[in-house]
């Protein structure tokens, strides 16, 4: 474990070194993130200020849903940025070298390219979240906060399995970019409470592609709106996704054709 952490640390520091070599890229990336966040933030703000409630949630609560979504989304992008660079590795056959190293390949192709720019964005998200929690005058019970942390961790585990699924599909089809974009589009639907969607869409994005479980449910825990059933279902879905994505990955390795000579 210590060795894995050391390798992870080295890979992360190299990734940070590489990212900061391109100054213009850093500035435009951060600017893009800030603009997207601000536009969507004000969209929600103006929308819910007029309607007062969105699916039963007030303005502050809706913004908290949005902020929790942004934190989870940033954390997943921060950890799994390397997945976005997976396709060239498969197409060129350079994945071969990674498969031959005496460590689990996920260390490199899944979490081997920590994105420092997403770490930077996490800071304002957290500050704004705390601000809105205070603004809402919410008295968060310790038990609810504890469940919130557990569900956040569960969201990251689910996101890990999603990204493993993307890697496996990448080996089968050499298609990564669109798969990840589909995931992100669905995830974005959960930036607002999933209660706003009608069935069967709500069921679909909660249990089939469980972005609702990942993004919306943790915020509900903060409000103390969860039942034990939801927690059990969350755990069961995570276990199922884990089994499914890892099985697919092992199968993909057997089918890997090592293109590029």
């Amino acid at each position: 474990m210590k060795r894995y952490l050391k390798i992870f640390w080295l890979l992360s520091s190299y990734s940070i070194k590489t990212s900061f070599q391109h100054r213009l890229g850093v500035v435009s990336f951060l600017l893009g993130k800030i603009i997207r966040f601000t536009v969507y933030f004000f969209f929600i703000y103006f929308l819910v200020s007029r309607t007062k409630l969105l699916a039963g949630y007030n303005l502050n609560q809706t913004i908290i849903f949005f902020l929790v979504y942004n934190i989870i989304d940033s954390l997943t992008q921060m950890f799994f940025r390397e997945v976005y660079r997976f396709r060239p590795l498969v197409v060129s056959g350079e994945l071969d070298h990674i498969l031959l190293k005496p460590y689990h390949p996920f260390l490199r192709i899944l979490v081997g390219g920590i994105d420092p720019l997403d770490i930077i964005m996490l800071v304002p998200y957290l500050i704004i979240l705390v601000f809105f929690i205070l603004q809402a005058g919410m008295a968060i019970l310790p038990v609810n906060f504890f469940i919130f942390l557990i569900l956040m961790s569960n969201a990251l585990i689910l996101a890990t399995f999603f990204h493993i699924l993307v890697l496996a599909i990448g080996i089968f089809t050499t298609e990564v970019d669109h798969t990840i974009l589909i995931y992100r589009d669905f995830a974005r639907m959960a930036s607002l409470p999933t209660d706003i969607y009608s069935e069967p869409l709500r069921f679909f994005i909660t249990f089939v592609i469980p972005v609702g479980l990942m993004m919306t449910i943790p915020a509900k825990a903060l409000f103390g709106l969860l039942t034990i059933n939801i927690l059990i279902i969350s755990a069961a879905i995570t276990v199922f996704f884990g089994w499914f994505s890892l099985s697919l990955w092992n199968n993909a390795l057997k089918k890997y054709q090592s293109w590029g000579g």
Binding site: E94, P102, G260
Partner: peptide
Amino acid sequence: KPDFLKQIAFIMGQKNQLLWEL
């Protein structure tokens, strides 16, 4: 198995495994 992978090396003339930017 890591013990096996630690005892072999595969070098491909047309493929790069060094960190490109560093």
